[in-house]
Nucleic acid binder design. Sequence first.
RNA 1: GGCGACGUGGCCAAGUGGUUAAGGCGGAGGUCUGCAAAACCUCUAUUCGGCGGUUCGAAUCCGCCCGUCGCCUCCA
Length: 462
Amino acid sequence: MKLYNTLTRKQEILSINNNIINMYICGVTPYASSHIGHAMSSVVFDVLRRYLEFKGFNVNHIQNFTDIDDKMIQVASELGISTVELADNNIKSFLTEMDLLNNLRAKFYPRATEEIDKIIEIISNLISKDLAYHNKDGVYFRVDKVENYGKLSRRTLKDMISGSRVEVDENKENSMDFALWKSKKSGEPFWNSPWGDGRPGWHIECSAMSIKYLGNTIDIHGGGQDLIFPHHENEIVQSEAFTQEIPFSKFWLHNGLLRMGSDKMSKSVGNIVLIKDVLNKFSSNAVRMFILSSHYRSPLDYSEDNIMGKENSIKKLYKVLEHTGGVHSNEINDLLESRKQQFINAMDDDLNTPRAIATIFDLSKDLNQLINKNIDITEGQILLNRLTNVLGIELTNKNKESDKDLYLEPLMSILTDIRFELRNKKEFELADKIRSGLYDLGINLEDNPKGTRWNFIEKGQS
RNA sequence: GGCGACGUGGCCAAGUGGUUAAGGCGGAGGUCUGCAAAACCUCUAUUCGGCGGUUCGAAUCCGCCCGUCGCCUCCA
């Protein structure tokens, strides 16, 4: 499988020697509800993990929570609660939303505030190597002491300093030096350290957690493109300086950002749409299909019309799975093998989900054609399910089955029987009245030669 | 200012040197049906932001121009 590595700006073959993949994905700072930009990132890396597992790898998937930083402190103070409580609340809803999106849970979710020991160990080590210094504001990393600072984001200290947006801080040796530890300010939560009470800076927590849980060199480190600089750049220098092992991560993967009316969706811009609001309007299948229908490194424009369209296209796939019967034919075997291979080829090519999805629709069309030839498509349905599952799209709709409860099922049976008799007697007006009445209640009837099938009209359809 | 990405049909989106430019949504017509619905079939880009160049041949490579966006400050 080839993946685009931000570090080398090239597609590289993912070569794994022991069947285990260590993958660290940058998680959220839980100071507010998550928006669908977070959903995009989480779905992309969930699909990567699912596909690697589909290929037989064992994926150690770790995702962190940065549960202490300026915003955490600020928001907690505004709400009159502790940062711990704020984090707990938002982490809980984040995980619920991940479940609803049908993302597999990471193997472990470490939290910055629970890894202070490891963070202090790393900072002490960096100070001892003269790569960091302590002043009244905290501890800073000396960016001009390492070679290749900027190797991930492809920029140089000179270029960045000449940029207009770097503010000069008198207390720092170099304006690009970044904080490893921030000294306590009054009223802020703090931990003890050799440099006084304070808290970890941004970046160091990810180095600590990645090294502690996955080792000095991991296979894949992922996140949004907005993390390339400074977050991942800084993680690299501090981690490699600490472990003396290069690379910190073999692959750096970054998803394109979700846009809102052609601006990046971001909490600070204020143009956000929350995951929970989207999931109120649309099925998670449609949301995933929307996210995966464009390549993960491209920016994606949020569009409700677009997601609505995905509801319709998914419905087609459902219909294929509902079909039963037909006679056995060997005709199906070659076809399934070639579609499966096309799917694998697409996914192997830097996780080309748009092409993989196209293959799924081709397969669906193939199967419908076989249905019309009265050929048994059971094997094809199994494959269709397997492939959509790699994308985290769940065509066996559990909700639907549970909603068709013991009370409703016999009731519908009576109604469809009555309609059957009415239609036999050519009393179509009355039969149609039942159908349109049920439609208004959210139940759709489909007459076919064998009888009448019914189903709930899904979210996002009218 | 520095670094980077992108511009493909009504919309979304693959394709990065060579037979008819994937797939989805939307739209049109047809088959089936009492009518719907569903499904299937056909049609819906002689053309890939613009202009030049390289080449036997370019959406795909090169140059210039126009436009959009991201990062350089917290961010998935």
